[in-house]
Each structure stands twice: as structure tokens, then as C-alpha cells.
Design a binder for these strands. Structure first.
Length: 802
RNA sequence: GCCCGAGUGGCGGAAUUGGUAGACGCCCGGGACUUAAAAUCCCGUGAGGCUUGCCUCGUACCGGUUCAAGUCCGGUCUCGGGCACCA
């Protein structure tokens, strides 16, 4: 009887919950709480204890809400399209759906073993045709609303995955999946006009209860900047060069123009003398991968041999250059360069010995030969001299509009979303290409367009999907004119299915609609969303975009999907992220066998503050395991030794409830666990002293433990005569007035140094305690002059002496 | 380069937001129980000093404010993460 039989207890209660759901989901009287984990990709490796951190956290919150009288939706599902399953299929010749279902089985078993209150009756799987029918349906709606379009353009291409990537997937010039350097490829692709939502995606961030870090990352990604587009005429040419600038106020300092090497006017603006030079530069610049292009900090460029005119300063001849530090797809792909007030332009001007003209007065102590980018008084700027540059900025914009060479604009870093992939394992894009009618969406009644079986999953480097080989699938008829036509062979990116799955949980089996309005109303939006920070830009931005679109077409009645977001920290081992390649992953399976899942749950929380990364200690679980044993033993020994309530027991109970509740509300889960340990130790000593405890405190402890160690809590509840489930109880309350103690231990200091302690009535005045305090501190006060006495009630008395 | 985090014992981490630094654990050492071990329980555990009870030092570093600073202010360093020529 040394250890409690966790294996049996946990099995028993898991079964009980399965047959008697505790989440009150159908109780319309109760307020709803939708607590969601980011659904996993079911990889072949199974879960490790790092994954569980977020799952345990969301489960604790869900159970806590149940005890607080909410009906709770806490679902789980599978984001199962994507490259790993496909690569596995290529290697082993097994259909991806087969490996997916095997992996799902493993994941599901593991997740069940943490004893989470997942409602498996609403499990979703993005690869299920009944699910992806609606993924395709949303695409069709976007198409009909002009948000999905085809375009030929240079795209991020991953030469290892053999597919195009969205900008979000190619951050830093690396493939998000395989880390290969991304190259550019000219292809016809499906795009989604996420840029049309840029302002809403940016503005609505304000109202979200999300980590500021994530909000900032999204804001940076959207990258809104205010400025102006200005036209510069070219000497001996009718062409104009349009630039985007955020600093139209510095136009008098714009001493040259730089175009991106890809700019369409380059050939035309190149003088014969310079042509060979220019062509060579373009060749070398475009041959560089985007990683190389970004990592080359040294400025390069060539002169085109022609000049532009500064619209406000006739005398200023502006040489026209090309350089690869100007990006072809931001702004207009051309810039006016103000070397005096822009770091990059300055560097370029220095290197190529171009004219630098200061137009904003830098502060007197500003170091020479550096770039002043701040605000100040204008100079060398004609009639704007002496004005403040911010005022001049407005005036120059007005003037440009009046004279017809420019206007105020805003610019975004956000680009439209490249939405097609040349891979097999994804949702087919539901489009038919008809020689007469062009692109035609598949009629809604014909959805889903099923993913056909193929002989080879191998992607090619031609930019064609493996589906292009399946001729009988590809051949179809045009839904409009009925003539022979071909299906679109590209598939959707894996983000498509995850951009709306949180809606489907509300009504997972609906075959008529994505989800019934009434059920969406009942559960959405998600109240609490838990997941890793790695989705800060990708998934979370796409899901917000989808939600706003679905709002616009009347499918949902809210514009933001996730009211509150929490990013759990990573669990590391020996300071490094757990991963298969390093071989430092810890599987929960063996831990559960040895200590039970309640001990593991407690340790996942105890390991550190949930928002920070924490290092896994293999022996750390001993602590929480010993604790649970201690509690179990305590209940065993004391359920028969019941005594009448005493003020001490009452005080302890209220302190206990307060500590756990306040810390839980603050999500300080690691201190919740230490609070349990500390208060339980206090309880054990008190029980020893009193020869027993009251029923009240046993009941309270069982309920407090329920969100954290639910199986044991049920067992304890039963031991003290409870029936049904501990979750039928309300969360205990506490009364601050019962916690206040009449006595207090205060610290005695002399000149701020701790010199003694003293127990006093908590409400005592300084005059009442001073004589005794002086006695204690005699040694330190002797022969000194007291300057000041500082007394903080219940805390400290500091006597300042000279 | 810019933007976030973080820096406290051998280790994970506490500290009521300016009021007794190191809670709660892990590891380690000592003891009890046991034929023995495991389990359990008790004691010790920041560093240094000696008169063994106390003193000095101590929250990355330097300086400041304050009766009082891990906490506030100014500066510096280190580590982790994100972004990175966005005009």
C-alpha cells in the first residue's frame, strides 16, 4: 500500500467520463466556453512531453470552467494534409491516407491517456472528403467574390519540395518546411486576395486579447506604411518613373533614382553606352537566390546612363541606376534616393560617389558623416526652407497633387496569398478549365472534388502537380457549356483546411452547410486558443482572413475567430528543443506507465511558467508523484478521523482555496502546484495536531485537485462518500476576511538591515510595539541617535539611526 | 542592425509588484525503520568567517533614487527567439 494504484484508478475514471460526459455541452442554461488547442499534424513520431504542455494547460482550463458552471467545448482533430505524409508515401509506396490513419490512432491513444476532456464526438479530419468538401466550398465562394484569381508571376519555389510557397512560408528566403533556399520560378498560380483585407487584419488586432508579441509580428508582416507615390520625368524620354516614398519631405535631397533590376522600364531607360554593363548586372542579380541577395550587405548597382528630373528642383539632374537592394515587388519597384537621410542610400552614394545634399538640419552635436533620419528644420529646399519637415511633408504632398506628379498613398508588405501547390496530398482546387468558358468553378452540388488515386506521388520540377498524370480524372466536362474540359490539377496549401476547422467543431457532421448557423452562434468565437508561437503569422493570419471573408458573405456573425490566445513555452531537454533528429524527445508513454498521467500532468505544469520555455528534468516527476501519493495516503488515513471544524481548519481551507484560485486565474500553473504542496503539508501538520480534519477540507481539496489530477480527484471524492463525479461540485469559494490573521510576524530592521523578528497583533500601532522592538534591537541602537522610524503594518519596522 | 523575452543556489524555479531573497520541488549528504534494499518519515543543504551563535557578502555587471531595490531609473554585458536592404 505504498503507492496508489494509478493505473487502475486512471483507467476506471477515463471509462467513466466516456460513458458519462462531464462537460455539460448540452445544458443550454449554462454559459458556453470554447477552449481550443491548435490541432496537430499527426506525424509518425507520436507525441512527446513537449507537445503535452499546451494540451494539459487547455485541459486544466476546460475542467476549471466546468467546475465553474460552464458548458464546455474542448474538441480535437487532425490537420492531416501536407508534405510529411506524402513524402512517407513516396518513400514507402503506402497511400498517405493509410499512414495518416495509423498516426491518428497513435495520437488519439496518447491524447486519451492524458485524461483530457476532449469531446471525441466532434473530431474532425481535414483529409476527410466530408470535411474538405467545405474547404473547397469556401474556395468557390472566394472565387465568386473575386478573391481567388489566377496569375502568372515569379514565385517562391522550393527545389526540394518541388512546389511553390506562399510568402509566409518563405520567410527569410528559406522553405518553412525543409529549410532549403527558395528560388524564383515563373508560374501560373492561384492567388487569394488577402491584401484586400490588409487594413481590417491590421486594425482588428487592437481588440484581441493576444500576446503583444504575436500582434506585433502580424502588424509587421502586414507592414502598412504611409507615404506618397511620385513621378519623375526622364530627360529625352516621354517615360516617367513612379516611386514610392515615406518621406516626400526630403524630395529636394533626392539626388538619384534606383530601380529594381527587374523593373519593366530598365531596358528602355538604358543608354547604348551602358547597355552591356546593365545586362550583365541584371543577369548576375537575378541568378542569385533570395538568400544570397538578402545576405549580400555590400551595395552593388550600375548606372543606366540616363537622368531623371527632380519635379521640384529643375536644376537637379538625377542619375538613374539599378541595384538589387531595391525590391521589385514592394512599392513601385523604384525609389528616389536621399543619401543624406537614408542609411542605405547613403551607403550607395558613398560607394559610387554620388551627390549628397542635406535637406533637414541635424542637431548640433550630431556626428559627422552619418545619416540623420530624424525630424527637424528644412534647408536647401527652396520655399520650404525653415519649415519643420513634418509640416513640409503635407505641403509637398498637396503640391504634388496640384502639379500632377504625385499623390499620398499607403503601402503594405503583405502580398496576396499564393494558394496552389504542385503536390498530391492536398485538397484539389475545385476549378474546371474550359477552352470556351475559361476558368469555371465546380458547382456546389458536385463538391467535393475527390482526390483521385495516383500511381506516383512524386512531385516534378516542371511546376505540374502529380494529378496532371491522372488523365481520366483530369478530363471532365465544362459545368457551363458541357464541352470537354480539364480539371485544375493543383492542390491547396495545408493552411486551407486549418483556416476554418474551429468552425466545423460546432457542427462536424453537417452535410448541408459548413456548420449550422445556430450552432455557430452557440459556440463561436473560440474563447481560449492554446498553441505554439510558430503559427503567429501563418495559421493565425490565414484563419483571421477566412473568418472575415465568411463574415462578409454572411456565414458567421463575428469577425475575429480567437478572442484570447495563449502561446505555451517550449519544453527543452538539456537546453535544446525536443526533436527526433537530436534524439532528446521524451515519450509520455513510459512515464505514464511508471507514474500515471496525473503525476505527469502535474509535472508538465510544475516544470515552469507556462508562457516560458522550460527544461525537462527526468527526475522532476518524482516530486509531483510523491505529492499525489501523499494526498492519497492522507485521505485514506483521515476519512474516518473526522473532527469538528476549528478556526484553524477554516483558516487553512480559505487560504488553500485562495492560493489555488488566484494562481490558476493568473495562469501561474507552476505556483499552483507548489501551492498544493505547501498547503497540503500545512494540512498534514494541522491534522496531526488536531487528531483529524473536518469533512469540509477533504471535500475542498478533492475539488481543487480536480482540474489538475482529475483521476485521483474522482477517486478521493468517492473515498469520502461522493457519488457520480467530483465535477458535479461547484468550485470552492474563499472569504478574504477568514484569511486575515490577528497576529503577524514582522521584520525588524536597523538602517535597512534585518536585525530581528517579532510577533505582534496585526493591527498594532507603532507606539504599541516600539518598546519591545527597542529591547530586541538594543544592541544595534545603543548609543545611536534615532533619526526616523518607518513602520509598515504587518510587515516591517525599520529604525534609522545615526 | 531593429523588435521582443530572459539572466536569482548544484538544478527547475518562488518572491503578495518597493518591505524578512531563495517558497515549492529535484539532486546530494546525514539519520530512523528494515536481515538488506525499495518505499516512507525526520534533519541538513547560497558563499565565506569565527567565539556555533552570530557576523559579512550575495539576485549578470557599473552607477543612481530610497529608510528600504531581485523589483524603479540610467548605462553595459551575455544568452534565447523573431524580423531583416519594405524605400
Amino acid at each position: 500500500m505504498d503507492r496508489y494504484n494509478f493505473t487502475e484508478i486512471e483507467k476506471k475514471w477515463r471509462k467513466h467520463w466516456e460513458n458519462h460526459p462531464i462537460n455539460n455541452a448540452d445544458d443550454q442554461q449554462k454559459k458556453k466556453y470554447y477552449c481550443l488547442d491548435m490541432f496537430p499534424y499527426p506525424s509518425g513520431e507520436g507525441l512527446h512531453v513537449g507537445h503535452w504542455r499546451g494540451y494539459v494547460l487547455s485541459d486544466v482550463l476546460s475542467r476549471y470552467k466546468i467546475l465553474n458552471g460552464f458548458r464546455v467545448l474542448h474538441p480535437m482533430g487532425w490537420d492531416a494534409f501536407g508534405l510529411p505524409a506524402e513524402n512517407h508515401a513516396i518513400e514507402h509506396g503506402i497511400h498517405p491516407s493509410a499512414s495518416v490513419s495509423a498516426n491518428v490512432a497513435t495520437f488519439k491513444r496518447q491524447l486519451m491517456e492524458i485524461g483530457a476532456v476532449y469531446d471525441w464526438s466532434c473530431e474532425v479530419n481535414t483529409t476527410d472528403p466530408a470535411y474538405y468538401k467545405w474547404t473547397q466550398w469556401i474556395f468557390v465562394q472566394m472565387y465568386k467574390n473575386g478573391l481567388a484569381y489566377e496569375k502568372d508571376m515569379p514565385l517562391n519555389w522550393c527545389p526540394s519540395c518541388n512546389t511553390v510557397l506562399a510568402n509566409e512560408e518563405a520567410q527569410g528566403g528559406e522553405c518553412e518546411r525543409c529549410k532549403s533556399p527558395v528560388t524564383k520560378k515563373m508560374l501560373r498560380q492561384w492567388m487569394l486576395k488577402i491584401t484586400e483585407y490588409a487594413d481590417r487584419l491590421l486594425d482588428d488586432l487592437d481588440g484581441l486579447d493576444w500576446p503583444i508579441k504575436v500582434k506585433k509580428m502580424q502588424a509587421d508582416w502586414i507592414g502598412k506604411s504611409y507615404g506618397a507615390e511620385l513621378d519623375f520625368s526622364v530627360e529625352n524620354s516621354s517615360e516617367k518613373i513612379r516611386v514610392f516614398t515615406t518621406r516626400p519631405d526630403t524630395i529636394f535631397g533626392a539626388t538619384f533614382i534606383v530601380l529594381a533590376p527587374e523593373h519593366p522600364l530598365v531596358a528602355e531607360l538604358t543608354s547604348e553606352k551602358c547597355r552591356a554593363n546593365v545586362e550583365e548586372y541584371i543577369k548576375s542579380a537575378t541568378a542569385k537566390s533570395s538568400v544570397e541577395r538578402m545576405s549580400d550587405k555590400e551595395k552593388t548597382g550600375v548606372f543606366l546612363g540616363t537622368y531623371a528630373k527632380n519635379p521640384l528642383d529643375d536644376g537637379l539632374r538625377m542619375p538613374i541606376w539599378i541595384a538589387d537592394y531595391v525590391l521589385p515587388d514592394y512599392g513601385t519597384g523604384a525609389i528616389m534616393c536621399v543619401p543624406a537621410h537614408d542609411e542605405r542610400d547613403f551607403e550607395f552614394a558613398k560607394k559610387f560617389d554620388l551627390y549628397i545634399r542635406e535637406v533637414i538640419k541635424s542637431p548640433a552635436d550630431f556626428p559627422k558623416d552619418t545619416v540623420f533620419a530624424g525630424d527637424g528644420e528644412m534647408l536647401n529646399s527652396g520655399r520650404f526652407n525653415g519649415k519643420h519637415n513634418r509640416a513640409a511633408l503635407e505641403e509637398i504632398c498637396e503640391e504634388s497633387e496640384k502639379l500632377g506628379f504625385g499623390k499620398k498613398t499607403v503601402n503594405y508588405k503583405l502580398r496576396d496569398w499564393v494558394f496552389s501547390r504542385q503536390r498530391y496530398w492536398g485538397e484539389p482546387i475545385p476549378i474546371v478549365h474550359c477552352p470556351d468558358c475559361g476558368t469555371v468553378p465546380v458547382p456546389e452540388e458536385d463538391l467535393p472534388v475527390l482526390l483521385p488515386d495516383v500511381k506516383s506521388y512524386q512531385p516534378t520540377d516542371t511546376g505540374e502537380s502529380p494529378l496532371a498524370d491522372v488523365h481520366e480524372w483530369m478530363s471532365t466536362t465544362c459545368p457551363v457549356c458541357g464541352k470537354p474540359a480539364k480539371r485544375e490539377t493543383n492542390t491547396m496549401p495545408t493552411w486551407a483546411g486549418s483556416s476554418w476547422y474551429f468552425l466545423r467543431y460546432a457542427d462536424p457532421f453537417n452535410s448541408e452547410k459548413l456548420a449550422a448557423e445556430e450552432l455557430l452562434k452557440q459556440w463561436l468565437p473560440v474563447d481560449y486558443y492554446v498553441g505554439g508561437v510558430e503559427h503567429a503569422v501563418l495559421h493565425l493570419l490565414y484563419a483571421r482572413f477566412y473568418t472575415k471573408f465568411l463574415y462578409d458573405i454572411g456565414v458567421v456573425d463575428f469577425t475575429e475567430p480567437f478572442t484570447k490566445l495563449f502561446n505555451q513555452g517550449m519544453i527543452t531537454r538539456n537546453g535544446r528543443k525536443m526533436s527526433k533528429s537530436i534524439g532528446n524527445g521524451v515519450s509520455p508513454d513510459s512515464i505514464i506507465r511508471e507514474y500515471g498521467c496525473d503525476a505527469l500532468r502535474m509535472y508538465e505544469l510544475f516544470v515552469g511558467p507556462p508562457a516560458l520555455d522550460s527544461d525537462w528534468d527526468d527526475s522532476g516527476i518524482e516530486g509531483t508523484f510523491r505529492y499525489l501519493n501523499k494526498v492519497w495516503k492522507f485521505f485514506n488515513e483521515h476519512r474516518e478521523k473526522i473532527v469538528a471544524t476549528t478556526p484553524e481548519l477554516e483558516h487553512l481551507r480559505h487560504v488553500f482555496v485562495r492560493d489555488i484560485t488566484v494562481r490558476l486565474e493568473n495562469l501561474s500553473m507552476n505556483t499552483v502546484v507548489s501551492g498544493f504542496m505547501e498547503q497540503t503539508n500545512a494540512l498534514i501538520s494541522l491534522a496531526k495536531k488536531l487528531g483529524g480534519v473536518d469533512e469540509e477540507i477533504l471535500l475542498t481539496l478533492a475539488v481543487l485537485l480536480a482540474p489538475f489530477a482529475p483521476h485521483l480527484a474522482e477517486e478521493l471524492w468517492m473515498m469520502i462518500g461522493g457519488t457520480d463525479s467530483v465535477f458535479a461540485n461547484p468550485w470552492p469559494t474563499y472569504d478574504e476576511s477568514k484569511i486575515k490573521s490577528d497576529m503577524a510576524d514582522i521584520a525588524l530592521q536597523v538602517n535597512g538591515k534585518l536585525r530581528g523578528q517579532m510577533a505582534i497583533p496585526a493591527a498594532a500601532e507603532l507606539s504599541e510595539i516600539l518598546p519591545q522592538a527597542r529591547e530586541i534591537l538594543e544592541k544595534w541602537l545603543d548609543g545611536k541617535e534615532v533619526v526616523k522610524e518607518i513602520y509598515v503594518k504587518g510587515r516591517i519596522l525599520n529604525i534609522v539611526v545615526r
